[in-house]
Design a protein around this nucleic acid. Structure first.
Lengths: 195, 195
DNA sequence: CTTTTGTTTAACAATTTTGTCAAACTCAAA
DNA sequence: TTTGAGTTTGACAAAATTGTTAAACAAAAG
C-alpha cells in the first residue's frame, strides 16, 4: 500500500514528543495528544493502531536520538577536553529542548513495559571510561572511579534542567533569569569537572 | 466523630508513598494502591473521598518532610563545612529511600493541578545564599553565583539516585554495586564541591 | 468524468478506572 | 448481650479512556 503523506502521522508523533519531553505531560491521553496536534483522535488509531504502539515508537526514537548525539561526541577524534566541551554543549542544548526525555525513559523503565534495550551501550561507555582513566593517569584529572566522573558530569548537566520548575520556584526566578543561569553553567561545569 | 484507628488510613497513605516515591509508579491506579496495601479498593474512597485528595495529601506531606529535613540542616548553628556534610548525608539517605519524590513533585507541578506552595522557602534559601557568599568572600569556596553552588550540590546528590535504573543499565551494574558507588559519592561530592 | 485508493470523520462499542451505596461486620460502651 | 458508631465489603453506577466501524471526503490514476 502506498501513502499520500499528508504529514499527519509525523505531526502526531512530534506533538506526542513535545507533550512528553518538553512539557512533561507523561500521561497525556490520546485525546490530549490529538487536540494538541489539532487532529481527530481517531487518527491516532489509524496511524498507530493503539496508544501503546505510539508510546513505543516515541520511546525508541527518543533513545536513538539521544544515543546518536552522545556517540557523535564520543567517537569524534579530538582532544579529551574538547570532547567534554562538545558533550556539555550538545547535551545541554538537547536537554533544554526536551528536559523530560530522560525522566520519561526512566518512568517507562519502571513500568516494566519496556525492557531497556541493552543495545550494547556498555561497550562504548567502556571506551569512554578508558579514555578518562588515561587522563587521570596523566594527571589531567583528579583521580577517582571514572564512573563517578561520568556521573558527576551528567548530573551537573542534566539535573538543573530536569528540575527547572522546582529550582525556579525555590529561587524565585522567571524563565529568562533561569535560562541565563543555565547558559552560564556550561563554562562552570567545565571548570568544576576539571578542578 | 471519633475514630477507631485500625491503621488502614495510614497504611494506604504509606503504600501510595512507596509506590510513587520508591518505585516510581507515578500513575498507579487506586486498585493498584489498594492491592499493594492488601485492602479493599473502596477504602481509598472511604478514607480519602477521591483519588485526587489522596494525591494531594501525599504530595503535601512529601513536600513537608522534604522541607523539614533541609531546614533542620540549614538552621543548625554549626560551621559551614559540617553543615554541608550533614546535608549530603541527610539528603542522600532521604533520596535513597524515596528516589522519585522530587520527580513526582515536578510532574505534579507540570499538571497544573497543584500550585506550588511558595511557603516562603525563598527566604530561608536567601539566608543560605548569604552564608555561602561569606564563605566565598573568605576564600573557602571558589567564587561563583551562590545559586550555582547550590545547584551543583543538589545535582551531584540527587541525579544519580533519580536516574539509578538508567545508570545501572549504562554501566552494567547490579543493585549492590550501584549502592556501593552511591555510598562512595558522599565523600566525593564533598571534595568536588570544596574544590 | 469516473474510479480507485488513501485519508478523515462521527457514531458506536468495549474497556478501564473511579465513585456510590446499602448491607455485613467488628469492637467498645451501655 | 445488646446497642451503636465506625469499619469493611461487594454490587452497582458513573465517568473517562481507548478501540472499531462504516460512511464521507479528497486527490491521484485511469
Amino acid at each position: 500500500m502506498s501513502t499520500r503523506d499528508t504529514g499527519t502521522e509525523q505531526l502526531i508523533k512530534d506533538t506526542a514528543k513535545h507533550l512528553f519531553f518538553a512539557e512533561g505531560k507523561l500521561h497525556a491521553t490520546t485525546q490530549e495528544i490529538a487536540d494538541a496536534a489539532g487532529v481527530n483522535r481517531t487518527l491516532v488509531n489509524y496511524y498507530f493502531r493503539s496508544r501503546d504502539i505510539l508510546f513505543d515508537q516515541v520511546f525508541n526514537e527518543a533513545q536513538d536520538v539521544f544515543s546518536t548525539t552522545l556517540d557523535e561526541v564520543f567517537e569524534s577524534n579530538i582532544p579529551f577536553k574538547e570532547k567534554i566541551r562538545n558533550l556539555i554543549n550538545a547535551f545541554t542544548e538537547e536537554t533544554k529542548e526536551y528536559p523530560y526525555r530522560q525522566l520519561f525513559i526512566i518512568t517507562e523503565m519502571n513500568r516494566d513495559l519496556v525492557l531497556y534495550s541493552k543495545r550494547s551501550r556498555v561497550n562504548k561507555v567502556k571506551e569512554f571510561i578508558d579514555e578518562i582513566q588515561v587522563e587521570m593517569d596523566n594527571g589531567e584529572l583528579r583521580k577517582m572511579d571514572p564512573r563517578q566522573f561520568i556521573i558527576n558530569l551528567f548530573s551537573l548537566m542534566a539535573h538543573p534542567l530536569i528540575t527547572a520548575p522546582l529550582q525556579k520556584a525555590i529561587f524565585g526566578m522567571n524563565d529568562d533569569e533561569y535560562a541565563k543561569l543555565m547558559e552560564e553553567r556550561k563554562e562552570l561545569i567545565f571548570e568544576t569537572i576539571f578542578r
